[in-house]
Amino acid sequence: MRQIVLKAENLRLRFGGVVAADGASLTAHAGERIAIIGPNGAGKTTFVNICTGYLKPQSGAVIFEGKDITQLAPRTIARGGIGRSFQLPQLFLDNTVFENLLLALSAREGTWRPWMRLDRHPKADEMRDMLEVIGLSSVGDRPVRELPEGMRKLIDIALALALKPRLVFMDEPTSGVSSREKFSIMDTLVRALDHSATTAIFVEHDMDVVSRYADRVAVWTGGKIALEGTPEHVLNDPDVRKNVIGV
């Protein structure tokens, strides 16, 4: 078996009367791509929020590369090698696309020099290449505010990957993207992940995307992972077909 990258153990969290996580556990191995599926509003994002430090579980633990990160702040976790993209892109709207990426680069390299212009960053070319890869070179100098949702989604993922994380969480990478574009985006993304041997856990609604790109599928219902396995196995499960996929 490959090395364990992330181990979420028995996570529990309730807000008032709502149980958001009820004994959720998941293990990710190096280089794996795991899709989390489940009914709407079931709290899949909550799971990502707990693993990335945005929420603290009432019990349970998140272990990343053998280290307990449960109580750490998002900032510390991000520095430790976990990247994240969001369902609703979280971007610096007033800055240009290129500046967004350069800020991520500065964050990674720790290059906060007050006398260096951000756009003259010594490794700026790396971000230019990244723009090229995600096909956004032509809008690099435009403020993010002016761009459509689909492009923002890509930039959001690019920001997460610019940190060169060893594990990345992606919350619905293809939502808000046209069905025509989703496969080309995912192809690009998966190529990048494979290239850098990054482990990925992504929440996804689109079963075409799940069956095509996931190594393993975890079904989130009732605040935990109720079932996991290969895409063929899980997506053919009668319960899953009825309650999650809706056929």
């Binding site: 998002p74 510390t76 991000a78 979280q90 610096f92 007033d94 991520a104 964050a107 997460a160």
Partner: peptide
Amino acid sequence: EAIKSNETRLEYLGV
């Protein structure tokens, strides 16, 4: 400027 527009993302960049 990033603080003005999105501190959440800044945190998630480890900043």
